[in-house]
Deep mutational scan, measured.
Amino acid sequence: MQNSHSGVNQLGGVFVNGRPLPDSTRQKIVELAHSGARPCDISRILQVSNGCVSKILGRYYETGSIRPRAIGGSKPRVATPEVVSKIAQYKRECPSIFAWEIRDRLLSEGVCTNDNIPSVSSINRVLRNLASEKQQMGADGMYDKLRMLNGQTGSWGTRPGWYPGTSVPGQPTQDGCQQQEGGGENTNSISSNGEDSDEAQMRLQLKRKLQRNRTSFTQEQIEALEKEFERTHYPDVFARERLAAKIDLPEARIQVWFSNRRAKWRREEKLRNQRRQASNTPSHIPISSSFSTSVYQPIPQPTTPVSSFTSGSMLGRTDTALTNTYSALPPMPSFTMANNLPMQPPVPSQTSSYSCMLPTSPSVNGRSYDTYTPPHMQTHMNSQPMGTSGTTSTGLISPGVSVPVQVPGSEPDMSQYWPRLQ
Rank of each mutant, 00 (worst) to 15 (best):
Q2S: 12
N3Y: 08
N3P: 13
N3Q: 12
H5M: 10
H5V: 11
H5I: 09
G7E: 08
G7I: 07
V8I: 10
N9C: 01
Q10C: 07
Q10G: 05
Q10H: 07
G12I: 03
G13W: 00
G13P: 00
V16G: 03
V16Y: 15
N17K: 15
N17L: 15
N17T: 09
G18V: 00
G18C: 03
R19G: 01
P20T: 01
P20D: 00
P20N: 00
L21C: 01
D23M: 15
T25Y: 06
T25F: 04
T25V: 09
T25N: 05
Q27H: 11
Q27G: 10
K28E: 07
I29T: 03
I29Q: 00
E31L: 08
L32P: 00
L32H: 06
L32F: 08
L32R: 02
A33C: 06
A33L: 06
H34S: 11
S35E: 14
S35M: 11
S35H: 12
G36F: 03
A37P: 01
A37M: 13
R38N: 05
R38M: 02
P39N: 15
P39M: 07
P39G: 12
P39F: 04
C40Q: 05
C40I: 11
C40L: 06
I42C: 03
I42K: 02
I42M: 02
S43P: 02
S43M: 01
S43Y: 01
R44T: 05
I45N: 08
I45W: 08
I45Y: 11
I45L: 10
I45H: 12
L46Y: 02
V48E: 04
V48D: 02
S49I: 02
S49F: 04
S49N: 06
S49L: 01
N50I: 07
N50G: 07
G51R: 03
C52G: 06
C52F: 02
C52L: 00
V53L: 00
V53N: 03
V53A: 01
V53K: 00
S54K: 03
K55H: 07
I56K: 00
L57G: 04
L57P: 00
G58E: 00
R59K: 05
R59F: 04
R59S: 03
Y60H: 01
Y60L: 03
Y60D: 00
Y61V: 14
T63R: 03
G64Q: 05
S65W: 02
S65C: 14
S65Q: 12
I66F: 13
I66K: 00
I66Y: 15
R67C: 07
R67H: 03
R67P: 03
R67N: 07
P68W: 03
P68M: 02
R69Y: 07
A70M: 08
A70W: 04
I71R: 15
G73R: 07
S74Y: 03
S74G: 09
S74K: 07
K75N: 04
R77F: 03
R77N: 02
R77V: 04
R77T: 07
R77G: 01
V78N: 01
V78T: 00
A79L: 14
A79M: 14
T80A: 03
T80R: 07
P81H: 07
P81N: 07
P81D: 07
P81R: 08
V83W: 00
V83L: 03
V83E: 01
V84S: 06
V84C: 10
S85E: 09
K86T: 08
I87E: 03
I87Y: 02
A88T: 08
A88F: 10
Q89K: 12
Y90F: 14
Y90K: 06
Y90V: 14
Y90P: 02
R92S: 13
C94M: 12
P95L: 08
S96Q: 09
I97N: 14
I97R: 15
F98V: 08
A99M: 04
A99G: 15
A99L: 02
A99V: 03
E101H: 07
R103I: 06
D104K: 09
D104T: 09
R105G: 11
L106I: 07
L106E: 04
L106A: 01
L107Q: 15
L107A: 14
S108A: 11
S108T: 13
E109Y: 09
G110C: 12
G110I: 12
V111F: 06
C112G: 04
T113F: 11
N114G: 13
I117H: 12
I117D: 08
I117P: 08
I117S: 12
P118V: 05
P118T: 05
P118D: 00
P118N: 01
P118L: 08
S119D: 00
V120Q: 06
S121L: 03
S122L: 03
S122D: 04
N124K: 05
R125G: 04
V126C: 09
V126M: 08
L127H: 15
R128L: 02
N129S: 06
L130Q: 10
A131M: 11
S132C: 12
S132M: 09
E133I: 08
K134R: 11
Q135G: 13
Q135A: 14
Q135T: 13
Q135W: 09
Q136A: 10
Q136Y: 10
M137W: 11
G138M: 13
A139F: 10
D140M: 11
D140P: 11
D140W: 08
D140I: 12
D140A: 11
G141S: 14
G141Q: 13
G141C: 12
M142V: 11
Y143D: 11
D144H: 11
D144F: 08
K145N: 11
K145G: 13
K145I: 14
L146I: 13
R147N: 13
M148C: 10
M148T: 15
M148Y: 13
M148H: 15
L149E: 15
